[in-house]
Amino acid sequence: MIKMRHIGKTYAQDGVKTVALKDVSFEVSSGEFVAIMGPSGSGKSTLMHILGALDTPTSGQYFLDNEDISKLDDDQLADIRNQKIGFVFQSFNLLPRTTALKNVMLPMAYAGISEGERRAKALQLLDEVGLSDRTEHLSNQLSGGQQQRVAIARALSMDPKIILADEPTGNIATTQAKEIMEIFSKLHRQGRTIIMITHEEDIARHAKRVIVIRDGLITEDKKL
């Protein structure tokens, strides 16, 4: 499903070159639950951006679903993100002052799905994450854990090939973090592919495979 071949990423800003990723190669098959770990500055965020088609590598090839997406333009990448990737961010990133329902409906709106269909799907997903009584709440009226559950429902709205979670429990109280991780485990059991970035050992333990990255290189890749 995911094939990364000698991916490198170099940032050039004000004439100063920063190497974020040197040479990263790995594969992820359908249905895997992978945690990517590493200290800050290791390049794991950059890897996440490339995996999520938010950024393109400066070298190497990235095959998602047998399609090389390392050379696509902005609008083509937007379609990839919309249809094949579901994002869960550390800081939730819901639209402010917008209802939970509308937030979940947004990616489907960009895909051109009809309003009725969007609403039905969003209600079903919100029910799955246990928020059927919060659909008309504004995003800022929800707790951190609830917001993240809305974000997960949103990530699932387009039935993506992979779910990318970037420190999904980083901004959430411990008890609620556990609930979030249970949702991820449930999604994994349903057969979804999940790639999660974290620096917390006990969060990573929920995954079935851990890739450790350091100084832009993979130093460890183990099954749990």
Binding site: D74, D79, R81, Q83, F87, N93, Y110, A111, R154
Partner: peptide
């Protein structure tokens, strides 16, 4: 800026 970034991440194209 953040909202625009989010919209683009969720699949909004330039034109949108």
């Amino acid at each position: 800026t953040r909202e625009i970034g989010l919209r683009k991440a969720l699949g909004a194209k330039k034109f949108t």
